[in-house]
């Protein structure tokens, strides 16, 4: 018994630290969002108020439109990146071919080199060809940081994938779509979810790329949030922050089961 206790003790401490460490920053966010006159040294707000939430949900705050822009961009980026990245993931995971190392390196390069550098470089061409100040340009520039992660995650699952089942289905007369739908998709579905989660989150979190290419006119949530961070209105900043994380958390809830307990999807990061 004592032996078990001894081995459990440090782990319990670590687990407690994980819970506190992850959750602690959310505490002041929640408190600030409903606070009214919360000055040092009060540990709790002197009085509560829904001022910030009322503002956030009033039409003049344009939070709804920002939510719309963020969702539109993130969904388009997710769909596009999976459409483009799925074949690439298959090629990298399944095939041996000449120049594979170079191709892999090239696709992963944007995870290493800051995308802001590339975005600043290409900005002048985007201006020239009308790709600034609109959703299309923002979606394109978001693809730069998103695509490598999608390809990486999907190539991970294809590395352990057996294409023989597809061949068997083909001999049984299944069409290309049927093969994808009934053979390929069920196998890669978890990894697809994780890839989708990462694509969505990376796009959803972008501030500076959106600001640069969206020219301030594609006002996504982070762009809106940032103008409040710099203004020092903590209550509204906190409320907006919570609005900002809500959809991403929903997305995580829907895909959490695929994140852990499945080494194929995230394991790809371990084989850079």
């Amino acid at each position: 018994m004592t032996r078990i206790k001894q081995t459990l003790q440090p782990r319990t401490l670590i687990l407690a630290a994980i819970v506190v460490g992850v959750l602690l920053p959310f505490v002041p966010l929640l408190l600030w969002s409903v606070s009214f006159r919360w000055l040092y040294p009060s540990v709790l707000p002197e009085s509560l108020s829904l001022r910030a939430w009322q503002y956030v949900f009033s039409p003049r705050a344009e939070v709804l439109s920002a939510l719309g822009y963020s969702t539109l961009v993130a969904l388009l980026v997710t769909a596009l990146s999976i459409l483009i990245g799925l074949p690439a993931g298959r090629a990298l995971g399944l095939y041996k071919f000449r120049g594979k190392t170079a191709v892999r390196f090239l696709i992963l390069a944007p995870t290493i080199v800051p995308t802001l550098a590339a975005a600043m470089g290409i900005h002048v061409l985007f201006i020239r060809y009308g790709l600034v100040d609109n959703v299309l340009g923002v979606v394109l520039v978001h693809l730069i940081p998103v695509l490598p992660y999608v390809v990486l995650i999907l190539s991970g699952v294809f590395a352990n994938y057996n294409p023989d089942f597809e061949a068997q289905a083909q001999t049984l007369g299944a069409s290309a779509w049927q093969r994808f739908r009934h053979v390929t998709l069920p196998t890669i579905f978890p990894a697809l979810m994780v890839a989708g989660l990462f694509a969505f989150i990376i796009s959803w979190s972008q501030y500076i790329l959106t600001l640069l290419i969206g020219g301030g006119q594609v006002v996504t949530l982070p762009v809106l949030l940032f103008s409040f961070v710099s203004s020092g209105d903590n209550a509204i900043t906190a409320a907006l922050s919570l609005v900002f994380i809500a959809p991403a958390l929903l997305f995580l809830l829907a895909t959490a089961r695929y994140l852990s307990g499945n080494q194929a999807s995230l394991g790809g990061f371990g084989k850079l």
Binding site: E62, I127, G215, V219, F226, S230
Partner: peptide
Amino acid sequence: NMVPVADGPEYVNKVLGEQQAGRDEDGS
């Protein structure tokens, strides 16, 4: 359409950038 910016020089630079890129008619 209100476009919120965090800092004034941002839009000055934006118009300058458009001028540099030759967008003389359809600025944003």
